[in-house]
Amino acid sequence: MKRYLHLKVVQIGRKVKRSPFLNKYFPKFKDPVYWAGDRMSFARAGFVGAFCMMLPIPFQMLLGSIIAYYVRANIPFATALAWITNPLTMGPIWYGGYRFGTWVLNTPSSAELAGHAQNIPIASSQWFSEVFPTIWQPFFLGNVMLGVIFGSIFYVLIGYFPYIKRFLVWAFSVRHSNS
């Protein structure tokens, strides 16, 4: 399984590095720091990926890859971390961020507001006009703060513990070929 996963990461990396669009608009894209990297490249990628994972926005993976490019971080690792938030996990992750935001802002949680919004369908125009204005601040603040906290934890763990870095180099490095 490990060998298969590593092979797939290498194949995807080679295809991406040969992309005409990426080579035109991101000229430093073939730099080895984005694909093989060093300890700090992986640490930066850990921060970027964990931060983007917590953002309640669409296309977190794309945002993580773009930010990784500009901060010279390992792109496959930052992208893989952003994949943690997927349709199955986004609800619990973002709800946890919302609860953290209500705790930080000391505002009532959705459980306390449930009596008022009990019969309002989620994502309806009525929900956006009555419920969303009361929850958006703790929702976004909590998720952004947790993204910074988790990103900092990843940065410290990867940047200062060498055994974690060895595994990441093995799993997410794309070997360069002459072709």
Rank of each mutant, 00 (worst) to 15 (best):
M1Y: 08
M1Q: 14
M1H: 14
K2C: 10
R3I: 00
H6Y: 00
H6F: 01
K8N: 08
K8M: 01
V9Y: 05
V9L: 03
V10P: 11
G13C: 07
G13M: 12
R14N: 03
K15A: 00
S19H: 05
L22A: 11
Y25S: 10
P27V: 01
P27L: 03
P27C: 01
K28R: 04
D31K: 05
D31M: 02
D31N: 04
R39D: 05
F42Q: 03
F42P: 06
G46K: 10
G46V: 03
C52V: 01
M53G: 08
L55C: 03
I57L: 05
F59H: 07
L62K: 11
G64F: 07
I67S: 14
R72I: 07
N74L: 01
N74R: 00
I75L: 06
I75V: 02
P76R: 09
P76F: 00
A78M: 05
A80Y: 09
L81P: 09
W83C: 09
I84M: 04
L88N: 15
M90W: 10
M90H: 12
Y95E: 06
G97Y: 02
G97Q: 02
W103F: 04
V104E: 09
L105Q: 11
N106Q: 07
S110G: 08
E112N: 14
L113G: 11
Q118A: 13
N119Q: 14
I120C: 13
P121Y: 13
S125V: 14
Q126P: 12
W127Q: 12
W127D: 10
F128P: 07
S129N: 11
E130K: 14
E130W: 13
V131S: 14
F132M: 12
W136S: 05
F139P: 01
F140E: 12
F140T: 09
G151A: 09
G151L: 07
V156D: 14
I158M: 06
I158E: 08
I158V: 04
G159M: 11
Y160M: 13
Y163A: 15
I164N: 10
K165S: 07
F167S: 10
L168K: 02
W170K: 15
R175T: 03
H176K: 15
S179W: 15
